[in-house]
Structures are given as structure tokens and as C-alpha cells.
Simulated scan of single mutants.
Amino acid sequence: MTVISHDESLKDRAVMAAMRAALAVSPAPESKPESRAAYDKLMAQVPIAASVGRTAGEVGGTAGWWCRPANEAPQQAILYLHGGGYVIGSAAAYRGLGSQIAARTGVPTFVADYALAPESPVPAAHPGFARLPA
């Protein structure tokens, strides 16, 4: 397995500072279905990286969004499982963060839109991941 790491850039610091500032004035989202809309609205504020294309797709039977950088690394991909404790969050809301990851790593990033609890409790929340190639 290849691990890619990089030092925090000034742009990364600015993005993190902006996210911390937004979170500081926002009420903490509760991990319950009623919080989904507010949580998605907050996460959707992460800007889409200009150099990254986004397309709907599917991996292992699970829908989601591909975030593909202009000069993507061949035969590499990042599988990004969004936050929210399997109860809140969506791939659509995390496209901005996925695009930022793809832009900084140069690796296509798939943001999975797995089913959420309590409607789809674990292990049903991500049945397609069991079929991903090793």
C-alpha cells in the first residue's frame, strides 16, 4: 500500500481556520436523522476545488461521487467515507471536501453515499464495500 503525505500548506491552514471559525459559531450537530439537513448544509460549505471534476458513480454497488483531479495519478484511488457516525452526512454534502482531497493528493477520490441508520443499520449501511476488490 502506498501512503502519500504532505506538509500542511498555507492554503490548508487557511481552509482549516475557516472551518474552525464556521464550527465555532454553529451549534454542534446531533447524530440523529433530524439533524441531516443542517449537517449537510454545514459540510456543503467546503468549496469545490477548481481543478477537480465531479461525477456521480458507483463502486462495489454503492453510489457516490467521483472527484477527479485534472492530472490524476494512474491506477490509484481514495475511498472516502464521510463523517456523521453512519447516521448523518451525505456524499453530496462532502463533494467539496472530496474535491479538496483529490486536488491536494492528485488521486481520484470516491465519496461513498452509503445508507444511514436507523433506517439501514450496520452492516446494511455499506453492503457494497464487502465486494470491493482487494
Score class of each variant (00 low, 15 high):
residue 79 L to E: 03
residue 64 G to V: 01
residue 90 S to E: 07
residue 76 Q to G: 02
residue 87 V to C: 13
residue 77 A to I: 02
residue 85 G to D: 09
residue 68 R to W: 06
residue 92 A to W: 04
residue 86 Y to K: 05
residue 91 A to H: 04
residue 89 G to D: 04
residue 89 G to P: 06
residue 64 G to D: 05
residue 61 G to P: 06
residue 74 P to T: 05
residue 68 R to A: 00
residue 62 T to P: 01
residue 83 G to Y: 03
residue 62 T to A: 13
residue 72 E to S: 12
residue 72 E to W: 04
residue 63 A to C: 02
residue 70 A to Y: 07
residue 69 P to Q: 00
residue 90 S to D: 07
residue 80 Y to H: 14
residue 92 A to F: 04
residue 66 W to N: 00
residue 73 A to E: 09
residue 65 W to T: 10
residue 84 G to Q: 12
residue 75 Q to D: 15
residue 80 Y to I: 05
residue 90 S to A: 10
residue 70 A to R: 14
residue 92 A to L: 12
residue 73 A to R: 15
residue 87 V to T: 14
residue 92 A to Y: 00
residue 63 A to F: 06
residue 71 N to D: 15
residue 91 A to E: 00
residue 64 G to P: 07
residue 72 E to R: 11
residue 63 A to N: 11
residue 65 W to K: 01
residue 73 A to V: 14
residue 86 Y to E: 05
residue 83 G to T: 12
residue 72 E to T: 00
residue 80 Y to C: 01
residue 74 P to R: 07
residue 76 Q to M: 13
residue 80 Y to K: 03
residue 79 L to S: 08
residue 71 N to I: 00
residue 76 Q to D: 05
residue 90 S to W: 07
residue 74 P to K: 02
residue 73 A to G: 02
residue 64 G to N: 10
residue 70 A to S: 13
residue 62 T to N: 13
residue 66 W to M: 08
residue 70 A to M: 11
residue 68 R to Y: 10
residue 63 A to K: 15
residue 82 H to L: 10
residue 84 G to F: 12
residue 72 E to V: 06
residue 67 C to Y: 05
residue 67 C to Q: 05
residue 86 Y to R: 10
residue 72 E to I: 01
residue 77 A to K: 08
residue 74 P to V: 03
residue 69 P to N: 04
residue 66 W to D: 09
residue 75 Q to C: 08
residue 73 A to Y: 06
residue 61 G to D: 08
residue 70 A to L: 12
residue 85 G to K: 09
residue 91 A to N: 01
residue 65 W to M: 12
residue 72 E to L: 05
residue 83 G to P: 03
residue 63 A to T: 12
residue 62 T to R: 01
residue 61 G to H: 11
residue 65 W to E: 06
residue 79 L to C: 11
residue 88 I to Y: 10
residue 82 H to E: 07
residue 83 G to N: 07
residue 64 G to F: 02
residue 66 W to I: 06
residue 85 G to H: 07
residue 74 P to S: 11
residue 91 A to W: 01
residue 88 I to R: 01
residue 85 G to P: 09
residue 68 R to T: 15
residue 80 Y to P: 00
residue 65 W to Q: 07
residue 77 A to C: 14
residue 89 G to Y: 06
residue 65 W to F: 14
residue 77 A to G: 10
residue 92 A to R: 14
residue 81 L to D: 03
residue 74 P to A: 12
residue 69 P to M: 12
residue 74 P to G: 03
residue 82 H to P: 04
residue 80 Y to E: 03
residue 61 G to R: 11
residue 77 A to F: 12
residue 62 T to Y: 05
residue 78 I to M: 01
residue 62 T to M: 15
residue 61 G to V: 10
residue 73 A to W: 00
residue 79 L to W: 12
residue 89 G to I: 10
residue 74 P to D: 09
residue 82 H to I: 08
residue 91 A to P: 03
residue 70 A to D: 11
residue 64 G to L: 04
residue 74 P to Q: 01
residue 65 W to D: 06
residue 87 V to K: 07
residue 71 N to M: 10
residue 92 A to I: 02
residue 89 G to H: 02
residue 64 G to K: 08
residue 87 V to P: 08
residue 86 Y to P: 08
residue 68 R to Q: 07
residue 80 Y to F: 15
residue 85 G to R: 09
residue 83 G to I: 00
